[in-house]
């Protein structure tokens, strides 16, 4: 049984049970993630935090169905996750996740038509609504290559939210943005999540981002990725500049440093 983020007598929305992920075959196989167990209830925003090489993105891709699970199980509403599908919409770090040949409106509308089976008119209405909600109504008919990085990520976020998935998967969506835009996007994402009650799995290596957007933070240690700590983020600590925010940041930072020191020590011992 996974570690529940809170005491709940209902079935978890997403449950990871002793999940292990490997790359490669046989003797040359590398373990990316080992024995991760955690449960998410609806409305939880779990941040996977860790240094590069801790397998956090691999874990997210496995939940998305983009990567096979080597041991353990990933269940969504009790059923093992299969191929990628619109019930788990992903937002990636790379800016090239939008279809360059479709406009902003076209990108979101197409996703709604194909992913949700809406007819053109219904899809267009919902697409317009969501593009407006991320503040891009004035570039509705622009092609992605004319947009800034932040705007492209907003379109991808609008697309993901518009499909109303069971679970939103965010793989460092703001990592390639400048610091100011990144903060702004974190705030906007937080408010969208609070409005919709979306359940989110969010991958990042930035501690302040984890405290800002998550309800819970799962810290992973690298090589292979193992669970190093699970912390709840109280709503009061989510406000930047508060003492609680700074304290949580410091605690998580210390936790991360400890995992790295631990791994280095381990590497020395084994090497």
């Amino acid at each position: 049984m996974g570690v529940a983020l809170r005491m709940a007598d209902t079935e978890p929305l997403l449950s990871l049970e002793n999940v292990t992920l490997r790359y490669g075959q046989g003797a040359s196989a590398v373990t990316a993630v080992e024995d991760v167990s955690v449960d998410l209830a609806a409305g939880d925003r779990l941040v996977l935090l860790g240094p590069s090489g801790c397998g956090k993105s691999s874990l997210l891709r496995a939940v998305g169905g983009f990567q096979p699970v080597d041991a353990g199980a990933i269940r969504l509403r009790g059923a093992p996750v299969g191929r990628p599908g619109p019930d788990r919409m992903a937002v990636f770090q790379e800016f090239d996740q939008l279809l360059p040949w479709r406009t902003v409106l076209g990108n979101v509308r197409y996703a709604l038509q194909r992913g949700r089976g809406l007819d053109r008119a219904a899809a267009e209405a919902r697409a317009r609504d969501w593009i407006g909600r991320v503040g891009l109504a004035r570039v509705m008919d622009a092609h992605p290559h004319t947009l800034s990085g932040g705007m492209k990520q907003r379109v991808a976020i609008a697309r993901a939210f518009a499909l109303e998935p069971d679970l939103l998967l965010m793989d460092e969506p703001f990592a390639a943005l400048d610091a100011l835009t990144r903060r702004q996007m974190q705030d906007e994402l937080l408010s969208l999540c609070e409005q919709t009650g979306a359940t989110v799995l969010f991958v990042t290596h930035a501690i302040d981002e984890a405290v800002r957007v998550g309800t819970h933070v799962l810290t992973l240690s690298p090589h292979p990725g193992r669970m190093a700590g699970l912390a709840a983020i109280p709503a009061a600590a989510r406000q930047r500049g508060t003492a609680a925010f700074a304290q949580l940041e410091a605690t998580l930072q210390a936790g991360l440093l400890a995992t790295e020191a631990h791994t280095e020590e381990g590497a020395r011992r084994h090497g």
């Binding site: 998305g64 983009f66 191929r83 990628p84 599908g85 619109p86 788990r88 919409m89 992903a90 990636f92 790379e94 090239d96 996740q97 939008l98 279809l99 360059p100 040949w101 197409y110 996703a111 194909r114 992913g115 991808a156």
Partner: peptide
């Protein structure tokens, strides 16, 4: 990333070719 974004919509193989791979 573009491939994953396409697969994310659960497209059939032919749609994936016609609507994602060919224009890309």
């Amino acid at each position: 990333t573009l491939r994953m974004a396409g697969r994310n919509l659960g497209l059939s193989p032919l749609r994936f070719i016609a609507e994602i791979l060919i224009p890309a």
